[in-house]
């Protein structure tokens, strides 16, 4: 394996991690506020569809992005109303959103485009295109450092860079601002926030909407950045992998980045090497490599990787006693 191959694998790792990073941070905001959200998948899917549909119809990827964000945030608001205002079961609400998104996108897609649930292929301005950094030609020639700049970091769509920037921004919001302090508190002990004179519901709604926003970015990236159009159920469990990454990351933004990069790396390796042959052991079939992120998800969700303590008030609707 030469150096350039490694750079190429890392390059596709970044590309494949971006939607996971968005979804994982989305889950982080929601769960840190005490609202469990297994509907990340559904929100991404809805955003993927509506962004692709809008982009296809108008030819503008930015209008597409707006449509995707709107769809995702509407679903987030539904989850918020169900679990905050009506104090319903957050898991059931999340499952409902996943089903709703999966069924709705396929149905509307078929009705609008008659392509078996797909949207038309996107090209040109109706997609997010790679951004090339300046001077890639010349800097790329510098050994070792050059390829990192021109092949690894350069040449992604704007959303990949936004995903990477969202990580430190999330950290800063959580640990340096009033909003973050209250958000972390409301997920641990909402009574402390309530008796402190701060509205629990308003805080949680804001968190859930941020979650919708970030899922929307992730979904739009899938359909208009990574791929060129929407395919039925194209999220393929990324929302759940992001949840696993969130647990793996112990609900911390920095670790969340590493966890998502790990999942992205596994995926990148599976794409790069169809069959991996190991001397004296035999061949690892491609199916196993493709299944690896999902296997790792199960392992993490089964609690086999260390002890992860979720926000204490997570999953519980806030009801003033008696």
């Amino acid at each position: 394996m030469d150096y350039l191959t490694i750079i190429q694998i890392l390059d596709s790792m970044l590309r494949l991690s971006a939607p996971l990073i968005f979804a994982c941070l989305a889950g982080l905001f929601s769960e840190r506020s005490g609202i469990f959200d297994i509907g990340l998948e559904g929100k991404m899917l809805a955003s993927a569809f509506f962004s692709a549909a809008m982009a296809a119809a108008t030819g503008s990827v930015w209008l597409g992005l707006m449509a995707g964000l709107t769809a995702s945030m509407i679903l987030a608001a539904i989850h918020g109303v169900a679990s905050i205002t009506f104090q319903g079961n957050q898991l059931i609400s999340g499952v409902a959103i996943n089903f709703l998104a999966s069924g709705m996108t396929a149905l509307i897609g078929q009705n609008w485009f008659r392509l078996g649930g797909r949207t038309p292929s996107l090209s040109g301005d109706s997609r997010f295109l790679p951004i090339d950094f300046p001077f890639t030609e010349s800097i790329g020639k510098i050994p070792i450092v050059g390829p990192i700049y021109s092949d690894l970091l350069s040449g992604h769509t704007i959303l990949v860079y936004i995903a990477l920037i969202t990580v430190p921004v999330t950290w800063w919001l959580l640990f340096r601002t009033r909003f973050g302090l209250r958000l972390r508190a409301v997920g641990e002990n909402p009574e402390a926030v309530d008796t402190g004179g701060v509205s629990v519901s308003f805080l949680r709604y804001r968190a859930v909407l941020i979650c919708g926003l970030l899922c929307g970015l992730g979904g739009a990236y899938l359909a208009t950045g990574m791929a060129a159009g929407f395919i039925r159920d194209m999220t393929a469990g990324k929302g759940f992998i992001a949840l696993a990454a969130l647990i793996f990351a112990k609900w911390r933004p920095g670790y969340a980045l590493y966890a998502c990069l790990l999942f992205g790396l596994l995926e990148a390796i599976a794409i790069r090497y169809q069959n991996i042959t190991i001397e004296g052991f035999g061949t690892i079939p491609v199916q196993f490599m493709q299944a690896l992120p999902y296997i790792l998800t199960i392992v993490i969700l089964a609690g086999l990787v260390g002890k992860a303590i979720p926000p204490k008030a997570g999953g519980e609707p806030y009801i003033k006693e008696r």
């Binding site: 009033r178 302090l181 209250r182 641990e188 002990n189 926030v193 402190g196």
Partner: peptide, 19 residues
């Protein structure tokens, strides 16, 4: 009504951060 994994200071200012 305290947040158990917060520091004393964080608990004291919670809700009255003024900034």
């Amino acid at each position: 009504k305290l947040v158990e994994n917060f520091t004393v200071l964080e608990n004291v200012i919670l809700g009255t951060e003024n900034n």
